[in-house]
Amino acid sequence: MNIPYQIVVCGGVVPDPLQTLEPIATANGPALKNELLLPHVLDPWSAHALYEAAHLARRSAGSKVWLVSVAPKTKLQQVMMTIGQRVPLELVAIEGPASGFTDAADVAAALAAGIEGIAGLDQSRLLLFGGWESASRAAGATMQMVGERLGIIDQFQGVDELSVADDGALRILERIEGGQHQVSVCSGPPVLLGWATGNLPEPPNHPQIGMQNMRAIMPALQKARTAQISGGARFESVTLPKQQRATRIVKDKPVEEIAREIVTWVTAE
């Protein structure tokens, strides 16, 4: 049974993981120092969600993928130059901060409003995807609130696998305690999936996809509406961990001695 899914992926942007991050206090609450200088990437878990969405859309004829993102337009544009080459998508851009210090509830409201603005959405075909957490706020709370606002109560978090049975039922693997997966079956859309890593590699660049996407991405960025997003919480302090260990550096020691020392340490209670 082929279902032409409507897959809506929510995903923000975060600083490229290798960048040095430092918090600063501003009149509007905490922020990252020189945040606008830092190269950004699509939030890694959202990126996994997007790749899974593209993979599923390819296998289910007639499916379509949207990416709904709350981010500063300039950063989103930079990220689209990479992501736009990888998967066919339609962008719904919402101008707003990418900061991790914003309130999940406000971001959820903005995302839900963006999704509701997509013409022709059909709940019976809707798969709402996102990352289970972000690399900025790392709360794992936003997607549930988006789902609630859209009336989706079949929700899954930490998803590593989605498969579609012949009758259209969705079989979902979620990460749970003990390094295990919980297996669930849902009769069909609408569902919400907060993805962990999944199992797919990053798709390679594809110039034709890029050309196709970019025709719609730029207009979407140009007409991005600004969302009202607050800090929500009252931040007392944001600090970098100070803990520095007094590292003992063992050099010029025979391998045998090092191995013995490690074994003694590993086996000690």
Binding site: A139, A141, Q144
Partner: peptide, 22 residues
Amino acid sequence: TSRWARSLPGVAQRLGGRADTH
């Protein structure tokens, strides 16, 4: 727990409250 982490943010939304995790 994975169970509460999945559901309680949605409950906060229903109650008009807020959830903080981790």
